[in-house]
């Protein structure tokens, strides 16, 4: 069965290692925080100026001055810090953040990503995504494999305006875990009960399948 959004988040959480500073994008990536192992030390960075994000506040304890990049009220963990936007992007651009997890509308086999604009339809802006993808060495994209019409979002070439070029290293979708290298998507894992053939059919870009592909263990 294909994963739901929480399933994707759960699988991505396995990529988070002890001692990592992690930036989580809006949407599915935000859910990753709920599934990170409790026996490791991880700090979540939000680009609006906080390191050491905690869970949502208890009802009645929310503070308008403490939010995340999704404008949601949050709390902070012991050891947290606040800083200005230029400092926040110094952490990002300066490669001090170990892992960036973000959503996408399209990814291409050369590592290009598009997630900020649909010409003449939707123009919300790139926010911090262009800075994140241009600098991070470890970028995981969380997304659905296909759009609502069943068309692949895992492409040979992006059709939408790009957010960054040649930057995506890993993609986790509702169907598969893919590594992006040598101008192809390399199939690493399948969602439980999903066949290689189903993944192949949902993938427009070049898919490399070598040997037996294991199911994700969630």
């Amino acid at each position: 069965m294909a994963l739901d959004k929480n399933g994707i988040a759960k699988r991505i959480a396995q990529e988070v290692q002890d001692g990592f500073y992690v930036n989580l994008g809006i949407g599915i990536p935000t859910l990753v925080a709920n599934y990170v192992r409790e026996d490791i030390e991880v700090e979540f960075q939000s680009e609006n100026g906080v390191l050491g994000m905690g869970p949502f506040p208890f009802d009645g304890e929310e503070d308008a001055d403490i939010i995340n990049a999704g404008k949601q009220t949050i709390t902070t963990m012991p050891g947290a810090s606040f800083f200005d936007s230029a400092t926040s992007f110094a952490m990002i651009r300066g490669k001090h953040v170990d892992l960036t997890i973000l959503g996408a509308m399209e990814v291409a086999e050369n590592g290009d990503i598009a997630n900020w604009k649909i010409p003449e339809k939707m123009v919300k802006g790139m926010g911090g995504a262009m800075d994140l993808v241009a600098s991070a060495e470890n970028i995981i994209v969380a997304m659905m494999h296909t759009n609502k019409r069943g068309e692949s979002k895992i492409l040979k070439q992006c059709s939408l305006p790009l957010t960054g070029v040649g930057c995506v290293t890993k993609v986790v979708t509702n169907l598969a875990v893919l590594e992006v290298k040598d101008k192809a998507f390399h199939l690493l894992e399948r969602a439980p009960g999903v066949s290689v053939e189903e993944i192949q059919n949902a993938t427009e870009g070049t898919l490399v399948v070598k040997g037996d592909i294991p199911e994700m263990s969630l």
């Binding site: 680009e47 936007s85 926040s88 992007f89 990002i92 651009r93 262009m130 800075d131 241009a134 600098s135």
Partner: peptide
């Protein structure tokens, strides 16, 4: 891009006419 926006402010504050960014 958000980091560029912040740095364009900081550059003006700090007296830099321009800067290079990968974003």
């Amino acid at each position: 891009p958000q980091g560029t926006l912040a740095e364009k402010c900081r550059a003006a504050q700090a007296g830099f006419p321009a800067f290079y960014t990968p974003a």
